[in-house]
Amino acid sequence: MQQETAEAGRWENLKLSISVFMANKSAVVGLIIVLVYLIDALIMQFDPMLLGIHHPDVLVPNFLNPVPLPPSPQHILGTTYPGIDLLTSILKAIRIDLAYSFFVVAVGASVGAVIGIVSAWASGMFDEVIMRITDIVFSIPYLILALAVGFILGRSLWHMSIALAITWWPLYARYARSQTLSTKEYTFIEAAKAAGVGRTTIMFRHILPNVLPPIFIQISLDLGSIMVIFSTLAFIGFIPSANIPELGYLTSLGLNFVQTAPWALIFPGLFITIFALAVNLLGDGLRDVIDPRRRG
């Protein structure tokens, strides 16, 4: 009987969650856009010929006609310097940007989340030290810090993403810590009632299931921001001139043609913006679902 009502309650909750999410039209649009990007990345990874693309890892320049051309039937989004077709390059670049952003998020966030949770759980001296460290890392603008770290490692795509991961974990550590702390408070009351339950059990049974979902949402939200920063670093010249299809780098190729070929700047930039926008819309919808106050 008890079991049944709990089951039914969960089902009703899920139904409510979905309907709350679906009620937010822009969140649904965001979800669709994110899916489209994902599908493009997967196609580029496994079967680029599906879209008629031969070299998914490099840009194909055309030095015979290097000056950017406006959009035309051959080049739907036009070309950028030196004679690179924008549409195919952007399709290729989405995979690269997405993959590296995923890497940054996966490494930075999971390290941060683990440190944050452990730190809140351990409390005391350890906690204090960790929080000081994150404070200090926070005291340097991340763009600058990433620049410095990347510079030390050597300028390349890989190093750039490692630098970003290194500079981003404190953010998650802080977030995970505050989440854990607030959960810990009421879990302890529960635990006191059911006295005799081990710490590890409480950790895995009670704390993690409550702490992880909001952290995951935060993480997925940051995918957009990281992609933006990633491309920004590439734009200001972090990747030494290479033939890598990356949206920020692609934008920077058109910088000298801002007066004659605006499309060369606008299109690659637009694709980043749309992705970041979609992720944010999606995240807003998800937050509606999680936050009981916004559930209404």
């Binding site: 933006v228 491309s231 934008t251 801002v258 700047l265 930039g269 970041a276």
Partner: peptide, 22 residues
């Protein structure tokens, strides 16, 4: 504000340059 928030800074710069400057 949502769109501005999602835009990389350099894109905002480029957009302004194009609109106001060019």
């Amino acid at each position: 504000s949502f769109s501005l928030y999602a835009m990389p800074i350099y894109l905002i710069a480029v957009a302004l340059i194009l609109a106001v400057g060019v």
